Simulated scan of single mutants.
Amino acid sequence: MEKAFLILLFFIFGSIIGSFLNVVIYRIPRGKSIKKPAFSFCPECGEKIKWYDNIPLLSYFILRGRCRYCKGKISIRYPFVEFLTGIASVMAFLKTGLSYDYIFTFGFISLMIAITFIDIDFRIIPDELNLIGFIMGIVYSAIKSNLVESLLGSLIGAGFLWGIAYIYLRFRGIEGLGMGDVKMMAFVGAYTGWFGALFTIFVGSFIGAVAGIIGAYLSKSEEKGKFEIPFGPFLSFAAIIYIFFGDIIKNWYLGGIM
């Protein structure tokens, strides 16, 4: 009973953070401050949203997905991000328990969620999020006395992806990867170390390639040559897998090749 209550609390906390992530996702790529205005507003009419219309998950369904003032449609993405972040909070709690590990694990996943949706919409990964993630990873590794592994992970992760981007640009003459993806791997490597960084790149690339092939096949024939997908969401997904199952994956792989 006590654990069920804690799970509910962590879900509520996560959904509140998810509401903040919606602000981050909307404002940062548009060059807007996340501090000012200090209140949420309707993107259609600009009207200030009252606190009782801004309760995570509940308000969306109470208002039936419409702004109270202009009746403009509110994207289902807002409650989805809140729900997703609530689930992420619970998963982080179940993995780490009540410890400082929860803060860094949940922080990592929250940044991955924000990066995913920003990259989907704008094909960019903001430097601010990568820098915050990198600093958090370094601090977390320092606390765990694993700083060298963290720095090595950042170097290998970013360096490996930069090398791929450079080769692609050199031989194809077009940019295949953005520097945001490269900087993101410095952030991921700071958390996961060298093995986790390489796992993220290879698994993210594989999933992205499969999604790209399916997407290109389903797209209109005249657009197939121009079909593009953001890489950040696939890196994020692979990185989250490693955050939760990294020890098992690493022990299985390294044990299998020794």
Rank of each mutant, 00 (worst) to 15 (best):
K3E: 13
A4Y: 07
F5M: 14
I7G: 00
F10A: 01
F11N: 01
G14V: 03
I17P: 00
G18W: 06
S19Y: 02
S19F: 04
F20D: 02
L21E: 00
V23F: 10
V24S: 01
V24T: 06
I28W: 03
P29D: 01
K32L: 15
K32I: 14
K32F: 12
S33K: 10
A38T: 00
F39V: 09
F39P: 05
P43E: 01
P43M: 03
E47A: 14
K48E: 03
W51Y: 09
W51S: 12
Y52F: 15
Y52Q: 12
P56E: 02
L57D: 03
S59E: 07
S59L: 12
R66W: 08
C67S: 01
C67Q: 00
R68V: 10
Y69V: 12
I76S: 13
I76Y: 12
Y78N: 02
L84V: 02
G86R: 05
A88G: 11
A92Y: 11
G97F: 15
L98I: 14
S99G: 04
Y102V: 14
I103Y: 07
F104C: 01
T105S: 15
F108R: 04
F108D: 01
F108H: 04
F108E: 00
I109R: 03
S110E: 03
S110Y: 10
T116I: 10
F117Y: 15
I118Q: 06
I118A: 04
D119T: 07
D121Q: 07
E128M: 14
L129E: 02
L129K: 02
L129F: 06
L131W: 15
I132G: 12
F134D: 05
I135E: 03
I135C: 11
G137T: 13
I138V: 15
I138E: 00
V139M: 03
V139P: 06
Y140K: 06
A142K: 09
S145H: 11
V148M: 13
G153A: 09
G153Q: 09
L155C: 12
I156A: 02
G157Q: 11
A158D: 10
G163P: 13
G163N: 09
G163R: 13
I164M: 09
I164F: 13
I167V: 15
Y168I: 14
Y168R: 09
F171T: 08
F171G: 00
G173S: 08
G173A: 04
G173R: 07
G173K: 12
E175H: 06
G176S: 07
G178Y: 14
M179L: 15
D181H: 10
D181S: 04
V182H: 06
F187I: 10
F187R: 06
F187T: 12
A190Y: 04
A190H: 04
A190V: 12
A190Q: 02
W194A: 13
W194S: 10
W194R: 10
L198D: 02
T200V: 09
F202L: 13
F202V: 10
G204V: 05
V210K: 12
G212I: 12
I213Q: 08
I214S: 01
L218A: 08
L218D: 06
S221K: 15
G225M: 05
K226A: 11
F227M: 05
F227I: 08
E228N: 00
I229N: 05
P230L: 00
L235C: 03
L235R: 00
A238W: 04
A238P: 04
A238H: 01
I241G: 08
F244Y: 15
F245H: 14
D247W: 05
D247V: 00
K250N: 13
I257Q: 05
M258V: 11
